[in-house]
């Protein structure tokens, strides 16, 4: 079921923090900063809330990329949830990498509430990265 590169529409899960990145996403929306639609955004209260299971679930269910957007360090509504996630992220990268998912399919970025353009830029860039990499190796395999 390999699709040609040109019609490859990556499926991307974005787990974004309610406070900063979600605001930036809304701002990108109201500022008419468009980015490709194939991003499924799921609002988390904090990146610190992101369980490793979510990332694994997304990859095993066929996500081509998982984007995680949180507040800049120091801006976290919950003081340091973002840094707590960052710590977990390191282990997750090692795991997905070993199982053949390019580490770059999992991306963490800090995007502040007023950074609508950064949100747009990050989304576009991430989609480009994923498009360049091609579909996830889990695509089309019955993995669950």
């Amino acid at each position: 079921m390999v699709k040609s590169m040109s019609d490859f529409q990556p499926k991307i899960i974005a787990l974004v923090c309610n406070w900063c990145t979600y605001t930036a996403a809304d701002l990108a929306g109201t500022s008419r900063l468009s980015y490709p639609a194939n991003i499924r955004m799921i609002r988390m209260m904090c990146t610190g809330m992101i369980d490793p299971k979510y990332i694994l679930k997304a990859f095993l269910d066929g996500a081509d990329g998982v984007f995680i957007g949180g507040c800049h360090p120091g801006d976290c509504h919950y003081i340091n949830g973002n840094l707590k996630f960052k710590k977990r992220m390191a282990g997750m990268e090692a795991i997905i990498k070993q199982f053949g998912f390019d580490e770059n399919r999992l991306r963490l970025r800090w995007i502040g509430a007023s950074e609508g353009p950064e949100f747009q830029h990050n989304m576009t860039d991430f989609i480009q990265t994923i498009q360049d990499m091609g579909p996830s190796p889990a695509q089309g395999i019955m993995v669950l």
Partner: peptide
């Protein structure tokens, strides 16, 4: 404050966040 760091840290869902 419902940040959910506890739930992410808990390996077996013994702590959960209401609504999340």
């Amino acid at each position: 404050q419902g940040c959910g760091v506890c739930a992410a840290e808990c390996p077996n869902g013994a702590t959960l966040i209401g609504d999340f």
